[in-house]
Design a protein around this nucleic acid. Structure first.
Lengths: 170, 170
DNA sequence: CACCAAAGGATTGCGCACAATCTTTTTATC
DNA sequence: GATAAAAAGATTGTGCGCAATCCTTTGGTG
């Protein structure tokens, strides 16, 4: 039997679980309000980025939201199907896809304007404490991402050992 | 053109996005270490709960981790397939499924003991600040969950108005 | 006992996340 | 100008999260 006070693996002691639980809880509260707009939470984040920056490339969205193309591609396809944005190949660089809000997508912003306030009020949160918390989370994210960048353990090797044209299995 | 300083929808101002980004970043850092143990991050959380409490029911795990049976059922099936836990119907109540760590599952704990410390060190985080942050996140989660409980919008009514045997829509 | 609501899990379906791979286009480099 | 490396997205496959539904068992209530 372990001493509960010294257990380094106690669930309540894990910052990672506190983050995981808080993020899911807040996302869940947002989900109730977002249902009216016909958006999921990640779709809402994409629209936030578009409302703030106007047209963006997939790469730009990926950098802002920290999501890769495997997540963004189908998500953007669904938002295009919803008529909230358009996806067009860039004329100057055929690799790039430009994501632009449609009129309907831009108009949706007004219906989202009071959403953060409503969520904060519903949960009875103190705006000042939230600002501090947001600040601390930003620093945490920066530290963790810097650490992840420093360790390319699982990262792709710059020199791939199998150039697929050389000797494929016949 | 909006005044950036007054935009209530600015992405960098959203606590929800700060939480979402921080949670994914930290989970990603854990993932690198968890690969050695053959665990995903949610599977690691289940093992943490089992190491701390011993045998638990699915309901108990659901309460601790805030995950429903739709998430837990397949996750626990995979952990059983990995040989880390067993799922057995309770003898006294045939509805209940007891989740117990196997010998291999219990032994895995030792290999996880230094994991939180390694993650904190890799990210260069200050343990004291982490404790404060964890505390603040706990309070936030409690507030948000209380708010979600107060609004049974999508939630199931305590008195469901359609007992499915009475008059289904023909 | 019959009946009926509630509880505990499992299943189904959908939408993320993320790793790995692939295709197309661009850009160096020779 | 041919060729290789890199960049930008898309695709595939796996594993969550979560809503909705279903099934079985249990606990009343008449």
């Amino acid at each position: 039997m372990e001493l509960r006070e010294d257990d380094p693996l106690a669930l309540e002691r894990q910052l990672c679980f506190a983050l995981y639980a808080a993020s899911r809880a807040l996302t869940g509260l947002y989900r109730e309000f977002l249902g009216d707009l016909g958006l999921t939470y990640p779709q809402y984040l994409v629209m936030l980025a578009l409302w703030e920056h106007g047209t963006l490339t997939v790469k730009g969205l990926s950098r802002i939201l920290r999501l890769d193309s495997g997540t963004l591609s189908p998500l953007l396809r669904r938002l295009e199907a919803s008529g909230l944005l358009t996806r067009t190949r860039s004329a100057t660089d055929e690799r790039v896809v430009e994501i632009a809000p449609t009129r309907r997508g831009a108009d949706l912003r007004e219906r989202a304007l009071d959403l953060p306030g409503r969520v904060v009020r519903a949960a009875g949160l103190d705006p000042e404490r939230l600002a501090d918390l947001r600040q601390a989370l930003g620093e945490l994210t920066a530290s963790v991402e810097a650490a992840a960048d420093r360790r390319p353990c699982t990262g792709a090797h710059p020199t791939t050992p199998n150039p697929q044209g050389s000797s494929p299995e016949p």
